[in-house]
Nucleic acid binder design. Structure first.
Lengths: 210, 210
DNA sequence: TGGCGCATCAACCGATCGGCTGACATCCGG
DNA sequence: CCGGATGTCAGCCGATCGGTTGATGCGCCA
């Protein structure tokens, strides 16, 4: 009985303790070999180019520097490794962005560790790996599509969260005040709120803002 | 040369993967024995009563159910174990609340794992253990005291984040609209903003709201 | 070529907000 | 016992917001 080659895994998480924990946990798992640790998106890219892992296990929240989604895009661009997202949030926006960027799987840190092991092997062979709540979220989204904010609307929202008035938002984005009001009205509709404060609140909760 | 008794440690984190990682990491460390894992504040209390750990390593963000700060309070109430907070955020509000509730130490997950080991031993012998950024934060706070929101102001802020107007906030809290406006004015001053949207934004960032 | 989504702008109006001044009660600690 | 922090309330005013209707231009795709 021949042992298959272990999955070569690269860890990427900005929290050193969590990273070390994952390293310790996964090193003891069969068929998995941790070949590197990165604490940022930049580091992950550099390391991946050098050690050529089969799978990158990546958190989406990477603190300062390169965004997690950006890192996924660059990693998977030219026949790179599979990327398995391991993160804390099962938010619509996060999942969508990660999958669009090229993630092979999406797991939650709340999942049982066994799920993580099998997901890593799935990802290594190119199969999609979603944890149950994430799959639920995707199905729910397809049945009851949450309206998506356009790019411009997100910019408006960003200025809104800075506490700016309509006039200042208009100046900041080089448009007229009337346009700002139009956008805001649509944003309220899409987020299901009626005031600017409510919009900011929902936006922060759904993680629609950096 | 006699080996000192190992520190009996209880883990509490709502993310199973992180928990398992910490378990794997700490089990391999000298002088530490992990005697239990809890995924919620309630579980931590029950387990602590049974296994009598020396130290509880606890995350502040525990998802639904009991709040992390509440759990610390109950754990340390009657000569219980030392509690060492291990969390992701070095926010003023989080640190203050945890320390007031009785935490012996406060570490960040971004810290190096070695810091974690020494902090656990420090906590076991009753010494305070703060990671550098947390200590910085406390010092900065003492030099340049951020004004604290009163309890009532936090309630107002909570309603504000729901997108309510002044009249509705007044009704929700059984006070007059004028009072709401007074509170809001003070909140703006303390948070350094000028609008409700700005207040909600800052509040969410400083984690002043659940 | 004709929709469709998106972004842009205008004018209007009532409701709301934010700032201001001033006031009174309570509670707590020096 | 007095000051300070806190919570409560009032009235006034200009500025801002939110809703509405209606319109134009652009790119995309069937």
């Amino acid at each position: 009985m021949n042992t298959p080659a272990p999955v070569r895994l690269l860890l990427c998480d900005d929290h050193a303790v969590v990273r070390a924990g994952l390293h310790a946990l996964l090193s003891s798992a069969d068929g998995i070999e941790v070949v590197g640790e990165a604490g940022s998106g930049e580091e992950a890219l550099a390391l991946a180019a050098r050690v050529r892992p089969d799978v990158v296990l990546m958190d989406l929240q990477l603190g300062d520097g390169m965004d997690g989604v950006t890192a996924i895009g660059k990693l998977t661009a030219d026949g790179g490794p599979r990327v398995l997202v391991l993160t804390m949030f099962d938010t619509d926006a996060d999942i969508t962005r990660a999958v669009e960027a090229g993630a092979t799987g999406y797991l939650l840190k709340a999942e049982r560790p066994e799920e993580l092991f099998t997901a890593i092997h799935s990802a290594a062979s190119g199969r999609t790996a979603l944890s149950a709540p994430v799959a639920d979220c995707l199905m729910a989204r397809m049945r009851n599509p949450h309206p998506t904010l356009s790019e411009r609307e997100q910019e408006i929202l960003g200025q809104l969260a800075r506490g700016l008035g309509n006039r200042d938002i208009a100046r900041a984005l080089f448009i007229s005040e009337a346009t700002v009001k139009t956008h805001l009205g649509r944003i309220y509709g899409k987020l299901g709120v009626e005031t600017r404060a409510g919009a900011v609140s929902v936006a922060k909760e759904r993680r629609l803002l950096s």
